[in-house]
Nucleic acid binder design. Structure first.
Length: 449
RNA sequence: UCCUCGAUAGCUCAAUCGGCAGAGCAAGCGGCUGUUAACCGCAAGGUUGGAGGUUCGAGUCCUCCUCGAGGAGCCA
């Protein structure tokens, strides 16, 4: 009987049986007549044990001199062994047959020792094969699925928005420009304005895709190209929006904890913080946040990662990174900061009735210094108020004509938010830098590979 | 764009006051029946990012350039 071809993630089902695995040689240690091959197949990692007496002489010699990253097909008996490393681990393959599909070149650049950031980024196409990157991107895939599942199951309709756009949504300084048959076009930095058109047809919608910001931002939290999911909801005020956001974020976190426990363990993520991410999340007004910051700054409080003193914050200014970190550190869950000054936020945010200097906006700050993962607000529903805001921000009226017109035909209170996928992955995985959260990051000064 | 730091073997890093360029790992060869980033032995590996300057002598000091990292601002 021909042994079944199986995947390593299902290895436990086949203990004692002969199976065939197809994969790549990740690591090898030899001990004379005994060769240990660590083999990766994309679903897991297993140690294959090649003993000279159990295999033909030709195949044993092939195993002994096989370069790292060679592709191979191995057949053997699955044995439970507590010593065996790997993912899921605890099983190894006692090899009886080994077929080399391709013998890799001998100079595979990434070894088991330390490498620098530049070297790893230059070799990103290979770096993806390493355990840590594999685990992160599997977590990412689960986060993306959780995002879609929750929205699809809660009455949201996916309506994709364009990537080539004629105008800026939030300003003109951070756009990638391209040529659209002779007229300038810009890569989308948000789908929100189109979402606002779509709610009048579908009620609750979301778009989910890459967005582009040509910011000269060179930090551990910024990419030039990143993925954002943007739900938009008709008949929704700010207070309801926050309830939706906390349900949404909690579902993403708890689903990932459940389905990617092995990967998070491989990443050595302390998941105790994440287990606490259940509704309700604390809510803090901008006014309260400024008071907290200034009271703490006066006491000489310092903030990680460098224990610099927390700078005071004048009312009306946006938070800097230390302010975000400090506010988030006051809570063990993500925290909403709402009612920011209108002047530091986008033009379309609804002013608070009777207090137009603040708007009905809320950002969600992740714990542990991961910063803003959601920006959201109630949108202006009155066409005249919107037009005045466009003028006040010095934006041209004509490109926004259709957007203003939305408010002339059945305007309703509506709200929406955008969640940055990479920042969410970074937070849930506990990463130092956002560059590891996407297969091929686009960063300031790097377009390759 | 600004601030700080850095660039030496394929990789990660040393090199004292300016005085012979050196390790570990990887790759190569040999050995080993339980390795977990194995271990032991052998051999190999260099235009010290580029250009110029100071000096008897520069990896080291000076000037400019290139590339990278961390941070700021801005943002998700």
């Amino acid at each position: 009987m021909t042994p079944p071809i199986i995947r390593i993630e299902h290895i436990a089902r086949y203990e004692g049986q002969e199976v065939t695995l197809r994969g790549w040689l990740q690591l090898k240690t030899g001990k004379g007549k005994l060769q240990f091959l660590r083999v990766r197949d994309g679903t897991g990692i297993i140690q294959a044990v090649v003993f000279r007496g159990n295999i033909s002489e030709e195949e044993f010699e092939a195993a002994k001199r096989l370069p790292l990253e060679s592709s191979l097909i191995i057949t053997g008996i699955v044995k439970g062994d507590a010593r065996a490393p790997g993912v899921p681990g605890g099983y190894e393959l006692d090899v009886r047959h080994l077929q080399v599909v391709q013998e890799a070149a001998e100079d595979y650049p990434i070894g088991p020792k330390e490498h620098g950031v530049e070297f790893l980024m230059d070799n990103r196409h290979f770096w993806l094969r390493s355990n840590r990157q594999w685990a992160i991107l599997r977590v990412r895939a689960t986060i993306v699925k959780a995002i879609r599942d929750w929205l699809d199951d809660n009455g949201f309709i996916l309506v994709d928005t364009p990537i080539l756009t004629p105008a800026a949504a939030e300003g003109t300084t951070t756009l990638f420009q391209t040529d659209y048959h002779g007229t300038p076009a810009y890569l989308a930095q948000t789908g929100q304005l189109y979402n606002e058109a779509n709610i009048f047809a579908f009620g609750k919608v979301y778009c989910f895709g890459p967005t582009f910001r040509a910011e000269k931002s060179k930090t551990r939290r910024h990419l030039q190209e990143f993925w954002m999911v943007e739900p938009e909801i008709a008949w929704c005020k700010l207070e309801e929006l926050l309830e939706i956001e906390e349900q949404f974020v909690s579902y993403i976190v708890q689903t990932t904890l459940r389905e990617r426990a092995a990967e998070l363990k491989a990443l050595e993520r302390d998941t105790s913080h994440l287990e606490k991410v259940i509704p309700p999340f604390p809510r803090l007004s901008y006014d309260e946040a400024v008071a907290c910051i200034n009271e703490a700054a006066a006491r000489g409080v310092t903030v990680p990662p460098h224990d610099d003193p927390l700078p005071p914050l004048e009312w009306g200014n946006d938070f800097g990174a230390p302010h975000e970190t400090f506010i988030a550190s006051l809570f063990d869950k993500p925290v909403f900061v709402h009612h920011y000054p209108s002047a530091v936020k986008a033009f379309y945010m609804e002013p608070e009735p009777g207090r137009p200097e603040v708007c009905r906006s809320a950002d969600l700050l992740a714990p542990e210094g991961y910063g803003e993962i959601i920006g959201g607000s109630e949108r202006m529903s009155d066409p005249d108020v919107l037009l005045a805001a466009i003028d006040r921000h010095g934006l041209p009226r004509e490109p926004y004509r259709w957007y203003i017109d939305l408010r002339r035909y059945g305007s309703v209170p509506h709200s929406g938010f955008g969640l940055g996928v990479e920042r969410t992955v970074s937070w849930i995985c506990g990463l130092e830098h956002i560059r590891e959260t996407i297969a091929f990051p686009r960063m300031l000064g790097r377009l390759n590979p």
